[in-house]
Each structure stands twice: as C-alpha cells, then as structure tokens.
Write a protein that binds this DNA or RNA. Structure first.
Lengths: 164, 164
DNA sequence: CTATCATACGTTATATCATAACAGTCAAGG
DNA sequence: CCTTGACTGTTATGATATAACGTATGATAG
C-alpha cells in the first residue's frame, strides 16, 4: 500500500497551516498542564498526523519516522500512535486501519468521523447528539457504555459536486 | 489467538435455539424471495455465526469450515463472510476484526453494536435514533452519508453485576 | 555521588488479518 | 454440445499489529 492513501486535499475543514499550529500548540499546552510527556517521537508523530490532513496508517507514520532517524520497526509507530490516542491527541479510524490527529485536543469530547470515499479525507464532526442517542440505545439494553466508535462513510461536499 | 474469543454466553438477547432457528429461516426466506444464492458454504457460515452468539473472526470460521470439508484457505471464509455482509445477513464488527450474524435479517436496517469487554459478547441494538443524529451531523458538514459503523464498548447487564 | 526504579525507546521475531490472481466445477441457456 | 457466468478452491503474498527483550535516560532515595 502506498504512502498516505488517506489524505487528500479536496475537502474542507482541514484548516491549513493556521489550524495545524493551533492544534499543535493546544496539544502541547494540554500535555504540559496534565504532566503528560509529549516526547520527540510522540510530538513528531502528532505533527505528521496533523500535516496529513487525513488519516495515516501506522506503517506510513513509521516510514516517515524512520526516514527522520527514529526507530525503524513497527512498535515505534504503534507506541507513539497508541499513546496519542490514549491521551486524546489522536483518534483511531477503525474502518481505515489508520489514525488521525484530534481536531479539538482541548476537550474530552466524543467524536464522529466522516470518511469520504471520493477523496479519502477524514473529518471529525461534533458527535454530542449522536453519542447521546447511542447512550440511550445502550441504556435501553441495560448496557453501560464506556466509549464508542462512530464512523460515517459517504461523500464530502466537494466530492458530491465532482461526481455530478 | 484461540478459537472464537468473541462469543460468550453471559449476556442476554442471544435468544437461544429458538432465536437461532428464527433468524435462519428468515434469512433463507429472504434469500429465496430476492433470488440470492445461499449456497452450502454461505449457509454453513451463517449458521456458525448464529451459533457463536457473538462475533467470530474470519480464521475462526475458516477453521470450522475446513474441519467440515470445505476449503481450507482464507478466501473461502472471507468470500462467504463478505457475501453475507453485502446482502444483509451478517455484520462486520470493525473493532474486533470479526463478524456476527444479523439479528434482524428481514429489514434493511441500520444497526449499532454493543460490545461487552467483560464477556466479549456482541449485541445488535436498534439504531434508528443514532443513525438519524449521525445523518444530521453529517448533513451539517455538507457530507452525504451512505452507511455508518456504530460500535459501543462497555459492559452488558450481566457483566456489570458480576463486577460489583 | 551513586544505587535504584520507572518510563521510554529500539530491536528481533512472530502473530494476525486480508486480498490478488488464477484454476477447476457446474448449472442454465443458446 | 459448448459457452458463459457464478461459485469454490488453491497458491502466494500483502498489510496490520503485538510479544518479548535489551538499552538508555532521568528522577529520586539513600
């Protein structure tokens, strides 16, 4: 599989350098505030995810890290990625076996992802209402929900136009 | 990994032989009605999923199929499983890299899955409201949703009690 | 200062999940 | 009969992920 299949530029909401800097500085601030060690590999991994404007597979990340002098073996990438996910700096997109930077690293939110089949972009959408509905459905079944994976597959605004 | 890790019996809603027969006959009826060829491998695969009362990995299914004289190689299982999913007889549980029989094969519904971390059971929950909320969230982003993956992780009623 | 301990990083090796590509079988229709 | 299309099976390989172990570094207690 080629380098960053998931990461095109035709879709909105990937706010450009401005947004990237914001996300990164918010993340660094939060790490400091909470005593989390955002080490060089972890930081660099986060930067890569942000720069990708989409989702990256672990091996895509590994390839870049290796090229920059970090470790060359899968656990290097998986550890950094899993740490970022555990601490809310990134999300795992299960449908793509890939990871994406969290667009709102400041709050401990529930997120839904909009995966475009046209341009492979991944957008994080506010999922308060969705999560509420899911919690409700779970409750009805006597199920106590800890967390959820919510991923929509379809076409972003730009790709809908492109196909017309 | 051992045989059918995902498939315990401590949780409800896996209605026992009665339910299994119902699901199976509904599925066969629908296949006939719609001109779908529910061949021996496919039928047997569906039976295995139903009997598992949870989710089975493709290789779990393959092992059983092989033991019964069907093909011994991965594509045999993946083809049957993918066909069942495509035609609404089963669902893929992305978080578990596994498959489960559809509990309501008669209607073309949207489903959410409740995955118990205590007993590895997987329960299919009605997801009308959740899907509606997600569609709404997608619309707000100008995203046209085709389908969705909705999976909740937590504890089923029985396992909540067990941990008290 | 230095012994100890926890955390993180890196490695080798292996496990697990999934599909591409091609060959044989068999029933339905010309 | 013989072609065609759907299905099943195979070999081979690709893609994703983790276990287990050794080393380095930095904080802290003695």
């Amino acid at each position: 599989m080629s380098e960053h299949i998931h990461g095109a530029f035709c879709c909105p909401d990937h706010s450009g350098q401005q947004g990237a800097r914001t996300i990164l500085s918010q993340a660094e601030a939060r790490a400091t505030r909470m005593g989390l060690r955002l080490t060089p590999v972890r930081l660099r991994t986060l930067e890569l995810l942000i720069a990708a404007h989409g989702a990256l597979g672990a091996y895509d990340v590994l390839e870049k890290l290796a090229a920059e002098g970090y470790g060359t073996q899968p656990p290097v990438a998986y550890r950094a990625l899993n740490w970022l996910v555990e601490h809310g700096f990134a999300h795992r997109i299960r449908r793509l076996n890939a990871f994406t930077a969290c667009a709102h690293p400041s709050d401990d939110h529930a997120a839904a992802f909009l995966i475009c089949t046209g341009c492979d972009s991944v957008t994080e959408a506010p999922a308060g209402a969705v999560t509420a509905a899911l919690t409700q459905a779970a409750d009805s079944a006597g199920f106590s929900m800890d967390r959820a994976t919510i991923e929509a597959v379809g076409q972003c605004r730009a790709c809908q136009g492109a196909n017309a």
